[in-house]
Design a protein around this nucleic acid. Sequence first.
DNA 1: CAGACATTTAGCGATTTCGCTAGATGTCGT
DNA 2: ACGACATCTAGCGAAATCGCTAAATGTCTG
Lengths: 95, 95
Amino acid sequence: MTPIAKLRALDEVVDAIAHPARRQILLTLHFRGGSATAGELAARFEHAWPTTTRHLRVLEDAGLLRHERRGRTRVYTLDRERLGLVTEWLGWFAT
Amino acid sequence: MTPIAKLRALDEVVDAIAHPARRQILLTLHFRGGSATAGELAARFEHAWPTTTRHLRVLEDAGLLRHERRGRTRVYTLDRERLGLVTEWLGWFAT
DNA sequence: CAGACATTTAGCGATTTCGCTAGATGTCGT
DNA sequence: ACGACATCTAGCGAAATCGCTAAATGTCTG
């Protein structure tokens, strides 16, 4: 990953986790073992379903999620790797 | 810090670091030894000065910065502590 | 005191974000 | 094929964000 691409990726990831609902989605996935269907995730919010759908898209565009079609459901899977970009950035401030 | 206050603080901090200019301000402060005047910081951006002033305010409201008046200048000082909230949040995902 | 200097506050306009509702899409069971 | 189901896409409206310019504030110097 070129340094510029990395900066852009960091920007997308930080943007993605800047919304509480999106952080909640990531945590929910984590504690469900990494995967859940769109319906299971949407059920955890009071938002209308399309609102959650959009949050899922933001997370996926940032590379924090992948999805696969399983029959008429969609299974979203957490991809923790890019969270490392934030950890790495925070590392600059290590005392 | 009550758990609710902590959640709110995390939200403010993540929001604050979600803008590239604000991340740049934090890094600049860090590499200058933790402090710099508003003018020194503003000089590092192509933004108009009041734009930087507002970014500084967001960072300070999130508890990532403090300032003190020194004559006619203002010295901003990095407060790394609240960055720990983000580190802590990321910790949930530790493999 | 007057004027220069360092910085902030006020407030406008463009853009983005976030929620919503309505309708489209693809899949399963009968 | 038909209807039910799971989910997405389209697009609207309110609110927030971000940049800007103009004007205010407080402090130093002569």
